[in-house]
């Protein structure tokens, strides 16, 4: 009786999660995968095959956009890690108990504002007639207004700003578990600051680093608004291609193919990243502490 009850409660608890995953993630992906394998041979006439994928492989512009998206996403991930690590370290280990919560909330503020509003905020600041440019002209630093939008640097800054929180949260939560005496032991046994950082802090934070990097990379590669609004026509972001295929060209087959390819390619990059750094999900993210 109690065993059946236990099983029933397990099913009830698990059901919402299973429904969510099943209906919102697995089913649509199967649908997308199915559509991507359809070849249009006439009006409302379809055949199954890999033609859509072959088309993609032949069109250098799409391929390059995918590579470029992945490459910039990796760069954004690295920057978010490099910038986020000291911030997280400060929040987790140096800040007083009381200011810690406040600092954490400050990192959350960007999330309070919608993606779209945030991107327009950047535009207000950075466009030719925007706040920064006007201010620089009136201070006499530059002679005429400059356009700071629509280039890669701006896109990268905007993306880092948007995603850095997702790096900071896992880093702070892993580093908070680190006992100060580990660092002191590191110094006491003769380690320099660099040694302690490299051999104690980083390995300890590794689960957070891996989790943060994966989250940030996936979010960046799949983001749409920030690169499109800040990068304009030259952004060449892969999600923009997907959007174009689905909405502008009404070519669902190509759009679905791109969607599947983005998923496969980013997963491949994550896998490669884990392999190259000698990490595995089991020993980092899923490690019980």
């Amino acid at each position: 009786m109690s065993r059946d009850a236990g099983r029933l409660s397990l099913i009830l608890l698990f059901a919402p999660f299973a429904l969510w995953i099943g209906l919102l993630i697995i089913l649509p992906q199967i649908g997308i995968g199915y559509i991507s394998l359809r070849e249009k041979v006439g009006i409302n006439e379809y055949e199954f095959g890999f033609k859509n994928y072959a088309d993609f492989a032949q069109a250098a512009v799409y391929r390059n956009t995918l590579f470029r998206t992945a490459w910039i996403s990796i760069l954004v991930t690295m920057l978010a890690l490099v910038l986020g690590f000291p911030i997280s370290y400060y929040i987790a280990k140096i800040a007083r108990e009381r200011s810690r919560a406040a600092l954490f909330l400050m990192c959350l503020i960007p999330l309070w504002v919608s993606d779209l509003v945030r991107a327009y905020g950047w535009i207000v600041l950075l466009r030719e007639t925007g706040v920064v440019s006007t201010a620089l002209v009136s201070m006499g630093v530059i002679n005429e207004p400059i356009e700071m939008l629509y280039n890669d640097v701006t896109v990268i800054i905007g993306l880092v700003y948007t995603v850095i929180l997702f790096m900071i949260v896992p880093l702070v939560s892993t580093m908070q578990g680190m006992d100060d005496s580990l660092l002191e032991a590191g110094f006491n046994l003769g380690g320099s600051r660099l040694t302690v950082f490299r051999r104690i802090v980083v390995p300890y934070a590794m689960p957070g680093i891996v989790a943060g990097c994966i989250i940030v990379f996936m979010i960046t590669a799949g983001s749409y608004l920030t690169p499109v609004l800040l990068g304009g026509k030259n952004s060449s972001w892969f999600t923009e291609q997907i959007y174009n295929q689905f909405i502008t060209r009404y070519n669902w087959e190509a759009g679905a193919t791109f969607g599947v390819l983005l998923l496969l390619f980013t997963s491949l990059v994550v896998w490669l990243g884990l392999r190259l750094t000698g990490q595995s999900l089991a020993t980092t993210v899923a490690k019980d502490t």
Partner: peptide
């Protein structure tokens, strides 16, 4: 150290 502080990693 009081709680030994052996490096867990």
């Amino acid at each position: 150290f009081q709680h030994l502080a052996l490096f867990p990693m």
